[in-house]
Simulated assay, not measured.
Amino acid sequence: MHTIVLLLCALVSASLLLPAADAWTSSCSDPYFKGCYGVVQKCPAACPKQCEVDCAYCKPICACDKPGAVCQDPRFIGGDGIMFYFHGKKDADFCIVSDTNLHINAHFIGKSKAGRKRDFTWVQSLGIMFGSHQLYIGANKVAIWDDSLDQITLTLDTTPVLLPAQRGASWASQLDAAELKISRIADTNAMTVELPGSFKLIARVVPILEEESRIHGYGITPEDCFAHLEINFKFFGLSDDVTGVLGQTYAPSFRSPVKVGVAMPIMGGESNFAASALMKPDCAVSKFKSTSVSLASLADSITEPTHPASISCASELGGATAGGRGIVCRR
């Protein structure tokens, strides 16, 4: 089993790290960078302490151990560094960040099991609202997992964002006073999304594999591997009043109510954080003030992407012959 874990960690690392001759020369000093499923990892000397979003060399090894993480069932690492679980409810939406200029809802999928008081849940998609805009990031429903196939869907204001399946491919759009940029950090199923002055995130689509399902008793069946998102956030300019399941942990006055040290510290408050739909910032604690007068009607139309975005693509650094590493697409 230990050999299998080592192999899995190596595969995750290799698929999402930029190749470098000295890729494993020193241990990372970040206290949250502890290990991947119990296996100690290393990162290069060039990697700074807060390397998940900032360092191209070491993302995202052990990403679920870093502040701003939303992973697994769903396991959160707050801005205060404290880990907790927020199970929510399957087929429901919850606000995870709500501030004056930014609101992020998460849609939970899950499975019920006889004799259990709660569902097994995972985050399937995000609805990110800022200004008059809405960004959807979601994992597609998948039966049998094949990592060579892209299973991540993005739409901006109901228009699909399409990128070539190539690590380094990027897409950008000027929105109001800032440029939204989306880039692949692997050929498939892993992207960064950045809105300067507001947030930066890494989103990965991962499945529930047979062995994981067996160990935890999830009961995953062949018709649905419950592909879901694992996300790492970094925020800029949050107000002192920020709230939401994750957002509240960034407020200066926040004191975690969870029982630190127990195997599964639970964050409650489902009634405060429940939203009526993925693109509606109407949870009880919402702070968001949209600049759009048609936000509700726009939210109702964001179900399935239908029309490709109008984009043009070019090599970011002049193409492969010029040493380029990716493709840039702009609309």
Results as ranks from 00 to 15, higher is better:
Pro48Ala: 04
Leu16Phe: 10
Ile109Tyr: 03
Val205Thr: 13
Val142Arg: 10
Leu195Met: 14
Ser256Leu: 02
Ser15Asp: 11
Cys64Thr: 08
Ala277Tyr: 03
Gly38Tyr: 09
Met279Leu: 13
Phe108His: 13
Tyr32Met: 02
Pro67Leu: 09
Arg214Ile: 07
Ser253Thr: 15
Gly268Thr: 12
Ser297Glu: 15
Glu230Val: 09
Glu212Leu: 09
Ile137Ala: 04
Leu135Asp: 13
Ala63Lys: 03
Val97Cys: 04
Ile128Ser: 03
Cys62Ser: 15
Pro60Gln: 03
Leu126Arg: 01
Leu229Glu: 06
Gly261Phe: 03
Arg118Gln: 13
Asn105Phe: 02
Lys49Cys: 06
Gly138Trp: 01
Ser213Phe: 03
Ile109Glu: 12
Gly68Asn: 08
Ile144Cys: 03
His107Met: 04
Cys64Ala: 13
Gly38Met: 08
Pro44Asp: 14
Leu154Met: 15
Asp241Gln: 15
Ser294His: 12
Asp150Ile: 04
Lys66Asn: 15
Asp80Leu: 05
Ser312Ala: 11
Lys141Gln: 12
Thr291Met: 03
Ala46Gln: 14
Ile302Pro: 00
Tyr32Glu: 01
Lys234Ser: 14
Leu229Tyr: 00
Ala63His: 10
Pro305Ser: 06
Asp65Tyr: 11
Leu295Thr: 09
Ser301His: 11
Leu163Ile: 05
Ala274Leu: 13
Ile215Ala: 07
Ser312Pro: 00
Phe94Asn: 07
Lys34Ala: 11
Lys90Cys: 06
Thr3Asp: 13
Met191Gly: 00
Gly269Leu: 02
Ala227Val: 04
Ser148Asp: 10
His216Pro: 01
Ser271Leu: 09
Lys234Glu: 12
Pro252Thr: 05
Gly244Glu: 05
Val123Gly: 06
Asn105Leu: 07
Val260Gly: 00
Val293Ser: 15
Ser213Tyr: 02
Pro252Ala: 07
Val123Pro: 08
Gly268Lys: 14
Ser315Met: 00
Leu8Asp: 07
Ile266Trp: 00
Pro265Lys: 08
Pro67Val: 10
Ile4Ala: 11
Ile152Val: 11
Ala21Cys: 01
Lys181Tyr: 00
Gln124Ala: 11
Phe108Glu: 09
Gln72Trp: 15
Arg331Asp: 15
Gly78Ser: 05
Gly138Ser: 11
Leu7Cys: 10
Pro196Phe: 02
Gln248Met: 10
Leu17Tyr: 14
Arg204His: 09
Asp224Glu: 03
Thr121Trp: 00
Asn189Pro: 02
Gln248Gly: 01
Gly81His: 05
Arg214Pro: 00
Phe130Trp: 05
Phe130Glu: 06
Ala299Ser: 14
Tyr218Glu: 04
Arg75His: 14
Gly318Arg: 04
Leu7Gln: 10
Ala139Val: 04
Asp73Leu: 10
Gly269Ile: 01
Ala56Ser: 13
Gly115Ser: 02
Ala190Gln: 01
Ala169Asn: 06
Pro207Trp: 06
Leu238Cys: 08
